[in-house]
Structures are given as C-alpha cells and as structure tokens.
Amino acid sequence: MRQVVIILLTVIGLYGCKTTQSPSYDYSAFLAAAPTSIVVMPPINNTPEVMAPYGLMAQIVRPIAEAGYYVFPVAVVNQTFMANGMTVAQDVHAIPYQKLHEIFGADAGLYITIRDYGTSYIVVNSVTVVSAEATLVDLRSGEILWQGAASASSGENRGANQNGLLGMLVEAALTQIIETVTDRGFDVAGIAASRLLSTKAHNGLLPGPRAPNKASPAN
C-alpha cells in the first residue's frame, strides 16, 4: 500500500508540473515549396498492436484534406506498394523520393511513425493512448518541409473515482477490458491524427491551397 501511495503521489506531481510550449516551427522551407498534394506512406508501427497502422490510417486522410491538400487515396497507395512487393513500411520509407514522385506525381510525402497504440493498465488507471510522429518531405527535392508529433488518451476527460482505492482498481480493470474489446484506439487515433495535422494546432500543418481559411497555425 505504501508503494502504491508513493507511485500515485509521483504521478500526480508529474501531471501537476507546468508544461512549456515548444518554440514555433520554422516554416520557411514549407512556404517556399508550397505543396498542393500529399501521398501518405504506410506508417512504421513501433507498438505490439498489429492493428495500429490500420487504425491510424483510417483517420489520417480527413485532417490533411481539411487542411486544404489533395490526399492520394491510401487504399490505392498501399495497393500500389503491395503490387510491387513492398509490404513492409520500413522498406516503403526507404524508397528514394524521386521514385515516389515519379510513381504518384505528388508534391510531398508524409512519413508517419506510431509510438503508442492501445489500452494499458497503469497503477490504478487504465487508458487507451495513441501517439505518433510525422515528417513531410518534398518529393521534388527531398527536403524536409515539416515535422510534428501528437498524442491522445481516452483518460483525458475522465472524472475522478470517488470509491476509494479498491473502486479505482476495479474501474481500471473494467475500463481496460471494455476499451480493448471495443477497439477504443480507433477513436483515440482520430483525436491524435487531428492534433498532429490540424492547421489550428501549435506547429501544425500550414493551410493548403484548398483551405477555406489561410491563417497560419497556432503559435
């Protein structure tokens, strides 16, 4: 019990620390390149969850399109790679940018790495977390135009349990079962994708040519 209390106090202390916002991103290369179309590479999955790439890819097109860019259909892109024997994301990411531009004719390629995806039991809480990193590369020059990272958790807006330690443990166990069975990661992936690629996010994507609002990302 003493160890549990110590861990809880440590977690509370970490969450209580004030977070500082990262410096504003340098968009000079992005502005100079002015991409209009983006092809999304199959994401590298650094998690044990085999469904992670599918869960994130199902949510990734919408925020890019809403940002004002033409997005190549991910199903067609994946089928193109598979038809040419490229079934591993790491191998796809290693394809020369000139070749990708030749195949798809896209201005830029979005390379994604999934860091977290799934439901886990942590002390007296159970949450589903999705986190990913992305790099936008100019497929005409090979230059990096933008990089970002974002995460989302199913426990962000969850209220505190008022039933004591035992109640918290029971709730955490039930939450883990429910969120695993219902694939809560799919919904959380949508939030993470929006945070990662929204033009309104701090250091997010710049609005594309089809964006209704050409304002810069939040600073």
Results as ranks from 00 to 15, higher is better:
72 F>M: 08
72 F>N: 04
74 V>N: 06
76 V>D: 15
77 V>H: 06
78 N>G: 07
79 Q>K: 09
80 T>R: 06
83 A>F: 03
84 N>P: 10
89 A>F: 12
89 A>D: 14
90 Q>H: 05
90 Q>V: 10
91 D>M: 06
91 D>T: 05
93 H>E: 05
94 A>L: 03
94 A>P: 15
97 Y>Q: 09
97 Y>P: 00
100 L>G: 08
100 L>W: 01
100 L>T: 12
102 E>C: 09
103 I>P: 11
104 F>N: 10
104 F>I: 04
105 G>V: 12
106 A>F: 09
111 Y>L: 09
112 I>C: 03
113 T>P: 14
116 D>N: 15
118 G>Y: 11
119 T>E: 03
120 S>I: 06
120 S>L: 11
120 S>D: 14
121 Y>I: 07
121 Y>P: 12
122 I>F: 09
122 I>G: 03
123 V>S: 11
124 V>W: 07
125 N>S: 15
125 N>I: 13
125 N>Q: 14
127 V>T: 13
128 T>P: 13
128 T>K: 15
130 V>D: 02
131 S>Y: 01
132 A>F: 13
133 E>T: 13
133 E>A: 04
133 E>K: 12
134 A>W: 02
136 L>W: 07
136 L>I: 00
137 V>N: 03
137 V>E: 01
138 D>A: 08
138 D>E: 06
138 D>F: 10
139 L>V: 08
140 R>S: 12
140 R>W: 02
141 S>W: 09
141 S>C: 07
142 G>L: 11
142 G>F: 10
143 E>V: 15
144 I>S: 10
145 L>W: 03
147 Q>A: 12
147 Q>S: 13
151 S>Q: 12
153 S>A: 00
153 S>Y: 08
154 S>P: 03
154 S>R: 14
155 G>Q: 01
161 N>D: 13
162 Q>N: 15
163 N>I: 02
165 L>F: 13
166 L>S: 12
166 L>A: 11
166 L>C: 01
168 M>N: 14
169 L>F: 12
169 L>V: 06
170 V>R: 14
171 E>N: 14
172 A>D: 02
174 L>Q: 07
